Amino acid sequence: MDHVASSTPDARSVPVCYRHPDRESGVRCTRCERPICPECMVSASVGFQCPECVHGGGPAHPDTPAGAGAGRSMAAARPRTLAGGTMTADPRLFTKVLIGVNIALFLVQQAVGDSFTVRFAMIGQYPGVQGVADGQFYRLLTAMFLHGGITHLLFNMLSLWWIGGPLEAALGRARYLSLYFVSGLAGSALTYAVAPHTLSLGASGAIFGLFGATGVLMRRLNYNMRPLFALLVINLIITFTPGFNIAWEAHVGGLVAGVVTGYAMVHAPRRNRALVQYGTCALVLVAVAVLTLVRTTQLT
């Protein structure tokens, strides 16, 4: 008797291509999330899409109800990213904006001098300088956009372009920005909690958060994660090597927040996707606020 593969979930543990039911596949279309085989994969900015979605005929959302109103149908028909965000003409726009802001503020640092850097860098408590412990909580945010030199800036911006662009395309702009800022603030908060008497600055905390979320995304898409792990290990070795004078707290804090938030972004159930995604961001921010307030109470 010839064996005929079934596409029903209960019949087999491995999904099969929806266009070729006799072919198993662990890859899904990044738009409609239906399993597709290598023959059906069409390379996209992030991952692969099925032929129907590439040509505009695929389902925009698996849960779109039949008979929905015209306005609702038009909204549902908009192309969506893997995480549920709206696909845009320039999927790297906000990554470009973030890079531009970092470069612009670095130029301001060079023009104004150390007074500008000391005014907005991450300082918890230091003799003669008011810091976070004195109520200047904005430093948790502003420190993310300052850098200690041209090498520091270039390394971070290259990492942001390489990691941030594809991740923005996969998540969508709003989710990507939420991840970036949540990770950066988590890195600043851990730095404040562990080393409140040192000055720290840089986008590394946010970028390590993007690293963590990228790892979650690559695992979700069944990509080879060894290159990412190798790069991450190299960065962590540099982070903890004496003499580099790197705030490891920002890197670790951003990485943990990025993994947690990224997991929610990529694996949130479709029915309550936005609630789970942004709810997780809110919970991480609550943890940041609690950590900051507890440390402030200890220092004052």
Score class of each variant (00 low, 15 high):
residue 1 M to L: 11
residue 1 M to I: 10
residue 6 S to L: 08
residue 8 T to A: 14
residue 8 T to W: 14
residue 11 A to H: 10
residue 21 P to W: 05
residue 23 R to Y: 03
residue 29 C to V: 06
residue 33 E to Y: 06
residue 43 S to N: 07
residue 46 V to C: 09
residue 47 G to N: 01
residue 48 F to H: 13
residue 49 Q to V: 15
residue 50 C to V: 08
residue 54 V to I: 11
residue 55 H to P: 00
residue 59 P to E: 03
residue 65 P to G: 00
residue 72 R to W: 01
residue 76 A to R: 13
residue 82 L to S: 10
residue 86 T to P: 04
residue 87 M to H: 03
residue 90 D to R: 13
residue 97 V to I: 15
residue 100 G to W: 06
residue 101 V to K: 12
residue 106 F to T: 06
residue 112 V to I: 15
residue 117 T to C: 01
residue 120 F to L: 11
residue 120 F to S: 07
residue 122 M to A: 15
residue 123 I to R: 10
residue 128 G to M: 01
residue 130 Q to K: 14
residue 139 R to N: 04
residue 140 L to C: 05
residue 140 L to V: 08
residue 142 T to W: 04
residue 150 I to S: 12
residue 165 G to Q: 15
residue 166 P to Y: 07
residue 168 E to Q: 15
residue 170 A to S: 03
residue 174 A to Y: 09
residue 175 R to V: 08
residue 177 L to V: 09
residue 179 L to D: 00
residue 180 Y to H: 10
residue 181 F to P: 09
residue 184 G to V: 04
residue 185 L to V: 04
residue 187 G to T: 06
residue 191 T to F: 14
residue 192 Y to F: 15
residue 197 H to V: 04
residue 197 H to W: 07
residue 199 L to E: 10
residue 200 S to A: 15
residue 204 S to N: 14
residue 212 G to H: 06
residue 216 V to I: 09
residue 220 R to V: 04
residue 221 L to W: 08
residue 223 Y to F: 15
residue 226 R to V: 15
residue 226 R to S: 14
residue 229 F to T: 11
residue 240 F to M: 05
residue 241 T to F: 10
residue 242 P to Y: 06
residue 242 P to K: 09
residue 245 N to Y: 12
residue 247 A to Y: 02
residue 248 W to H: 02
residue 258 G to L: 02
residue 259 V to Y: 05
residue 259 V to W: 00
residue 260 V to Y: 02
residue 265 M to F: 13
residue 273 R to G: 02
residue 283 L to C: 10
residue 284 V to A: 00
residue 287 A to T: 08
residue 288 V to W: 03
residue 293 L to T: 11
